[in-house]
Amino acid sequence: MAYNRCIGTRYCANNCPVKVRRFNYFNYNAEVGVGYGVEAFPSAIEKANRKLQALVLNPEVTVRGRGVMEKCTYCVQRVEKAKIHARKEGRKIEDGDVITACQAACSTNAIDFGNISDEESVVAKKHADTRAYGMLEQLNIKPRTMYLARVRNPHPRLKTTQQIEDLATIEAHHGHGGHGEGDGHDEHAADAHGEAAHNDSAHSDEHHGEEQHAE
């Protein structure tokens, strides 16, 4: 989101199939003095300041006034910081350089964040997992955020024909991904195949904690 270029037509929010966007319908920052019109005078800003008991704005990202679209930035300030550090040290970003706020707060470690273009990173490996699926992938929206399907672990002999077919399709699909994983990973993947039943349709009903997000 380039907040300062946004005029707020909200077309992007309509078209977002996963509805992750939110809109600043009002000047939610009025209390900390991002005023418009007569409210923008310094005295008014000070007055607004007195009302507010806590400094709630993240000083590391652009201040958004009303009328602009809002979206998860994947903690761009943390990403930038990690990039700067990595650049200073002349290396690529590694796993653990960037810990997003949601990741830090997640008590069950369900979220991984990292460099998907680095094949060795945890996220890239998880993206390549047969359990990985994107939300509404069928719309060709190519999401960066992927989810890992619930592990059902049925006995192989109890699998339905449908499950076996689905699994075969998924494996074929992932095999063409061209990630060039190492042998070790393939073995791991093969193990997972035995257990993972990829079930998209059941996804929304499932308990969130059982899933892992790989972003």
Binding site: N29, V32, G33, V34, G35, A40, I45, P59, V63, G65
Partner: peptide, 9 residues
């Protein structure tokens, strides 16, 4: 242009 003259930061 109010918000150009007064940065909230």
């Amino acid at each position: 242009f109010m918000d150009m003259d007064f940065s909230p930061a």
